[in-house]
């Protein structure tokens, strides 16, 4: 506390003004560096309108022979990635809770932070030469990333759980493992499962990118149609992808809400 109850007020540029100034400066510098001149930006709307025009009319010709199978593959590899993530993250979430295993938690949190820092596409980059081009590599890449994410979120759920019931199990002669199964798991499992489902939604979105390095899913098809300027077919890929992803989000979202309520 200051000794003067009412210090003399002097105008100072506040935190907000400084931030705006610095960010503004960095922005201008970045724009200059990537050669985003005003002329280029002025031309952008017209160019964009022209390109968007290419996407019409939507070409459904390969809808069910190529697009749908690719989307299905995306769903499959997202699913397997999520299953891998959920299965491996469950023990890691418990071992990674500092309230239960202070020592192991530090190690596990470090490892999962490292895993999370590497974008899944880089994992795929290494996995493709090992297991070959295709969705298996993509599923593994998503799996690795999911383990990192889900262990962190899971450990947070476990850390916020009430450990009192666990002590009751141990007081009745139960082992640590029994205390975790009977006293902890019923508390945290619904929340963990909600995280798994949300990770599935995110994995499905991520799977649309893995195709870039040949790791399967709808991404490869999207990339190729756009690269070879088959915009009308790309439109079909986009429309179907958006519809499927939104539908799955809706189902998964309502299951998640049910899990968290019950």
């Amino acid at each position: 506390m200051s000794a003067h109850p009412l210090p003399a007020r002097r105008w100072r540029p506040g935190f907000a003004s400084w931030t705006t100034l610095i960010v503004g400066g960095l922005l201008l510098w970045s724009l200059w560096a990537i050669e985003a001149s005003p002329e280029r930006l002025a031309r952008l709307p017209a160019q964009l309108a022209q390109v968007l025009g290419f996407f019409w009319p939507v070409d459904w010709q390969y809808g069910h022979t190529r697009v749908l199978p690719a989307i299905v593959e995306s769903i499959q590899l997202a699913w397997i990635g999520t299953i891998i993530g959920a299965a491996l993250s469950l023990p890691l979430a418990i071992l990674g809770a500092s309230t239960l295993f202070p020592w192991a938690a530090k190690v596990i949190k470090g490892i999962s932070a490292t895993i999370r820092a590497v974008p899944e596409i880089l994992w795929a980059l290494y996995l493709v030469p090992i297991v070959g081009l295709g969705p298996f590599a993509g599923a593994l890449a998503l799996g690795i990333n999911s383990v990192g994410m889900l262990s962190k979120l899971g450990a947070e759920v476990v850390e916020s759980a009430d450990l009192a019931a666990m002590e009751a199990v141990e007081a009745a002669g139960g082992s640590r493992l029994a205390a975790i199964r009977l006293g902890l798991l019923p508390q945290v499992l619904p929340e963990l499962m909600a995280h798994w489902l949300f990770r599935f939604e995110l994995n499905l979105r991520a799977s649309a990118v893995l195709g870039v390095v040949g790791a399967g899913g709808v991404g490869g098809l999207l990339l190729n149609t756009l690269r070879y300027r088959q915009f009308e077919m790309a439109a079909a890929v986009l429309v179907l992808t958006v519809l499927v992803v939104l539908a799955i989000d809706m189902v998964s979202g309502s299951v998640r809400r049910k899990l968290l309520r019950g």
Binding site: R40, Q47, G211, T241, V242, L246
Partner: peptide
């Protein structure tokens, strides 16, 4: 907002690359 969130960033990159050419500007957009 929902549709925006659902379209893959890959698509936006290719869209802008087609419009303004490959390079950092397309990435920034």
């Amino acid at each position: 907002m929902n549709i925006l969130r659902t379209l893959p960033d890959l698509f936006w990159a290719m869209l802008f690359a087609t419009a303004v050419g490959f390079g950092p500007l397309a990435g920034a957009l």
